[in-house]
Amino acid sequence: MIRFENVTKVYDQKARPALDSINLEIDRGEFAFLVGASGSGKSTFLRLVLKEDRASSGAVYVAGQNVANISSWRVPRLRRGIGVVFQDFRLLPQKSVFANVAFAMQVIGKSRSVIRDTVPEVLKTVGLEGKENRLPHELSGGEQQRVAIARAVVNRPGILLADEPTGNLDPTTSMGIMGVLDKINQNGTTVVMATHDDDIVNEMRKRVVELKNGVIIRDEARALYTSMIPVVGQSRRLRDASGRTEQPAASSRAEARADAPAELRTAGEGQA
């Protein structure tokens, strides 16, 4: 569904690249966490998927299409296939819950009757039945994020990108949000979630892609927030990666463990 081939993104020629020769494939229907410290390249990754930015080199494929080949007037069509959720919800404060969700359908020209049918259905999916007429400030943070998720998925995108969706929420509320995201994932939507929230990652046991300084240092299935696999020589490889003396290793070869068999997906596996 999303494929990065040797993608490098340089914002500033003098500084190190935000993403450095990333190879990654996320399949249809998958749920993947993107973890890593601030500045590790998580947001850049999401921006490249949305074609908000252009990769400096390499190719980004979304739903089988190289986004570099999408002309500017067809970018809206790309974005209709991708839902986005943010840490700060980004709801329209003067519009009701229903109107906020309906807005996403109105602006792409859906008819009023379709909107009337679809919005309540989606609000039910995110667990906001009966709150259609509330204004955002009358809702809790968790409820506001549910509205944002409803808006992101109301047009049935194949991909849902979530940029720290639980960043402003307490742990219990966060788990509720994760339940919603999981439900959406069960319905076949590919979910990519950038997060710092280790509790959630540990609880969900989904695929984890860890970025550090623009390089993928870990890519494990059903993994935890921090790797439980002691990787020998990691510090040396990182030094090489940051010094850019050689093609940085894009994957960490993890030894298979009996309790958590690692499923290596990175394309760089062969070189490592």
Binding site: I82, V107, I108, N155
Partner: peptide, 17 residues
């Protein structure tokens, strides 16, 4: 800018925005 930002994200065409 909030509205137009959201319109952009959900894939509204340039014309509509």
């Amino acid at each position: 800018r909030r509205e137009t930002g959201i319109m952009r994200l959900v894939g509204a065409s340039k014309m509509v925005i």
